[in-house]
Write a protein that binds this DNA or RNA. Structure first.
Lengths: 191, 191, 191, 191
DNA sequence: GATGAATGAGCCTTCATTCAT
DNA sequence: CATGAATGAAGGCTCATTCAT
């Protein structure tokens, strides 16, 4: 793929991210994406064979970026607690950037098996990265802990639904809270 | 609403639960629900003004039941650990019963504000119930802990996606794991 | 199929015959057929699953009628020459009634195998009917003669293309001419 | 038109013949023709103003070649019977070479009047050539006989639809059969 | 109240044609 | 001359909703 074609592809994916992200798969019209991308409807089909395919590609790119950043975080220097905090920060800002998108995180086309395959692959890699961290800390049941920690992080989703506006300070407090809980359990928390 | 009308309403809601639950909002046709309910398409509109309305009513009833059961659990006798375990069990089996539904948990009609209002109300009440439990245990930051605990429970969703088949034994182990982590943090776990 | 449904089906088939007949399969829009039938676009799909299906059904009904009439003709009393004449008349008026339709006689959807199967079945039955006549006359190679005679009749198609307007008298002359040729060959014709 | 341009034109017409011939006018995409011709889509439009125009040009060239060969046949030495046989052979092999094309012989764009004008002109010339032959034999009603003979030849189309595979021997038998019938009528045939 | 035939707005996708390079 | 990326009009089909019976 040469530069121009790549540019167009990304231009479309950016538009798709915007529109799918705010409206969800089903409420999005291809014409809206085209308009957002500043191109004609038909042009999308030069690069993506269908609406489903476009959605999948868009999500895939997004997940890929998420994983790349997560990878950097996990590989960075720091204590266990610091790393957990960074992961939390990463996760939170990911949701925050996608505010509306968050709502429809799981609102993908139901019946596209490719979509599900891709989603599974993402989750696997995602959990695996966090698992590595647990292993380095020589914790027991690192896989389970990875799952649980990602569950904890996902509680952000609920919080964003509750109170969409959060200051930087508050965010840091939430993250610290989660990490402390994860490390010491509920009794040893001092807010 | 007389008894008969109530019956019909529930009959429709049952069908809606089945079909919406397995196919998601957008992939479900009103005719499928009618067929599942054993009535004619038009009849649905005697009781619900639109597809969105029906979805909302169906979800509302489902959430109501969830809350009722959760209420019983929270009000039941037992140690803090036991109660947390029961809540976990309740949550897990809720997801399990809805297996496919899990997939589309958030796949509600995007643009219906009533839907979002209702969802917010549910979450509020849901968290509030767990918060009470935390308060009774005289924990600090009970609201935050409630949020976090519900986040932990939601990690089941991810596990069901990973490995759809889980025996009773495994389930109990998972729940115990979550509760222990919540109580003592990651270092004091022994699997 | 009750009376009403049958009526609607025929109403649609009539409209389809008109529009497909004059415009051909590809140039016809479903909306035109709906308009011609005085119903809504969607209604057609209650009775026919697709444009191809409708075309096939329309053609099938038309062929069926053709065969029924041909059957009557072949079964009627009269000398061999008289019967051939009647068949010719039948064939000619069939084309004439379909003037425009004639143009597109073979303009069916190319890639629908059902369509081709149906067409083959029609041709087989059609030739078979004429073959019976040849057998009754104890002619040699009745099947081949049937094929050839139908080829002769089809030369009407070409004539209609040449001179679309033909009086009754002229028609009778053409038919007589064809039959005489078939009976005696080209040398014994006296126009 | 210089040699190179002529080459390109013929290159496109050859491709058009292939693709239109097997798929029919409506099912053919300009891009397929371009691909078959080994050129870019846009290039076609340097030589032909539209799909219809290209189809017409392709058909015209094809018909022209048909007429040229037919002319040679009609002008060749031989008895009347021999000439009829050669015409039959020519006609049959024309169809056979176009096997699939046969299917769509009349599947030209419906609403292009130029197309119809051209087709009429072809038929006229075609019949006229055969008519000359009839005149040379001093037959009565040479024009009508020409029409009828061409109708007879067209019965090949039906036979190819019935049994697509025909050996050389069978072909000769069919042709002989047709010619004999034309010469002597149905009673004097011996197969 | 119940029905289900009828409606028609709406959207994905195709593909002939154009035009900047 | 040649290219092929871009265009956008057009149409088949779906399905939530209505309403005469």
């Amino acid at each position: 793929m040469n530069t121009q074609a790549g540019d167009k592809v990304n231009q479309i994916l950016d538009a798709a991210f915007q529109v799918f992200g705010t409206q969800g798969f089903y409420e999005t019209k291809m014409s809206e994406i085209a308009e957002q991308a500043g191109i004609a409807k038909g042009t999308i089909y030069l690069y993506f064979s269908s609406k489903e395919e476009l959605y999948k590609a868009m999500t895939e790119r997004d997940f890929q970026r998420y994983l790349e950043e997560l990878h950097k975080v996990v590989s960075s220097e720091g204590s266990f607690e610091e790393l957990l905090t960074r992961i939390g920060r990463h996760h939170f800002y990911y949701y925050l950037e996608r505010k509306e998108y968050t709502r429809v995180f799981f609102q993908s086309p139901n019946n596209d098996p490719n979509m599900w395959k891709m989603l599974r692959a993402f989750l696997q890699e995602y959990v695996s990265l966090i698992e590595q961290l647990m292993q380095r800390e020589r914790l027991q049941a690192p896989h389970d802990l990875a799952l649980v920690f990602s569950g904890l992080l996902d509680s952000f989703k609920m919080e964003i639904l509750h109170s969409p506006e959060m200051g930087k300070e508050q965010v840091e407090k939430r993250i610290s809270f989660l990490v402390q809980l994860f490390l010491k359990g509920c009794y040893e928390l001092s807010e």
